[in-house]
Design a protein around this nucleic acid. Sequence first.
RNA 1: UCCUCAGUAGCUCAGUUGGUUAGAGCAUCUGGCUGUUAACCAGAGGGUCCAAGGUUCGAGUCCUUGCUGAGGAGCCA
Length: 461
Amino acid sequence: MRIRIKELLKNPDLGKEFEISGWVRTKRGNKNIAFIALNDGSTIHNIQVVLNMADFEEEIIRKVTTGSCIKVEGVLAASPGKEQPVELHGSRLHVYGTADPDHYPLQKKGHSLEFLREIAHLRPRTNTFGAVLRIRHAMSFAIHKYFNDRGFYYLHTPIITASDCEGAGEMFRVTTLDLKNPPLLEDGSVDFGEDFFGRETSLTVSGQLEGELAALALSNIYTFGPTFRAENSNTPRHLAEFWMIEPEMAFYDIHDNMDLAEDFLGYLIRYAMEHCSDDLKFLNNMYDRDLMGRLEFTLNNKYERITYSRAVEVLIQSGEKFEYPVSWGVDLQTEHERYLVERHYRKPVMVTDYPKDIKAFYMKQNDDGKTVRGLDVLFPKIGEIIGGSQREEDYHKLRRRIQELSLPEKDLWWYLETRRFGTAPHSGFGLGFERLLLFVTGLGNIRDVIPFPRFPKNANF
RNA sequence: UCCUCAGUAGCUCAGUUGGUUAGAGCAUCUGGCUGUUAACCAGAGGGUCCAAGGUUCGAGUCCUUGCUGAGGAGCCA
């Protein structure tokens, strides 16, 4: 009966027989003895397997190379070496799969993250990606636990959508039409009436609008699913396919929304520190010496809450020379956000009440007629981690805004009907899952916190 | 998409004002070593210098274009 290495390393039963399986990280030794560092992904730690060469055929020992997969049965013993408390003295060895050392690309020494991206099929076998994938799992689980414990319902919003009005970015088209020979209308344009759904469809850029429908029935819901943006974004913070968490709450105003966002992020970071400490320590030592300090710092400081107008004042009064000059009405640039978070306040900042012209149509309009109740949460190092708002619940104000912006009102009839029938104040936000992971892991490129990244010119693996 | 930088051995990188047979560390292979710790010691093999064109007596090195990657910006989560 196989035991996972994570459990074996904690097991106090020295002298007992155990069976383990895993992938070889290194083998070293001489003609009398061999040491194998074995890892099965259950923990970042390897177990040292010790083989007395006299007990085995030379042929089978030769097959054990970096990257090969083996099963070992043996006795757990205290290790005389300094680097590990226990080790397994192997008495039986089975090789599941060899890994030709001339061709196996992973070495026991360091690889660049850029190189590992080119071998994404093998990078889960590295310490770094083992750590990232375990943290990714823990964060997914913690998200569901957080909401479940608080009475939120997990809502599955559609991935294929016909609504082109979310306004969050370029969309990927979904079609079964023959691209070489599509059916045409009389004016020469493509006849999407002939397409699978009988209309133009795309991959979703947000589940928010559907999320609102459910919140105005179940009170508190959240979505957690894949999201697609066809923007030609080439940055360490953008993916074409990423995962987003979107809670939506009836009877929440913008302040309730902020309270939730801050509590939620704090919960997740605390969860990672409690449940992933080995992996975080590794990442801290290998990639980001400030990681643990920064995580603790965000837990120990209340987020600064300011309005957009106040942010503009601070930036103007700073005397800083920005590449993009600041004035009321223009959107905050990355350099402005970084100044606020990293230099002025030195902690996470929540900015609200943006000019209505730079924000989406569905945000609740303030009485001043100029601003809307949008919310951005800005984090050190990664910038915008959350974007959200209190939603406009007034049917007439919402409809007028749709008309002002020349949005296709007829496609939004279902969204507007929630404001005609039993409307309610409500709020929500979107958290980019991989942005969260960037912050929690301390890694610098979003392509390294998702197993198989999709970005312009790349859909490999 | 724009700006900047880069592409040389399996990996990480050096390569001088353009000059003769392109180097190092690690990895791999061979040998050695009675418990190692990214083991160590000795030796060996390993190159379409990203691609195509150009300048030149001569190009890894200079020029043009393209491809790929990284960082920054825009868009945003």
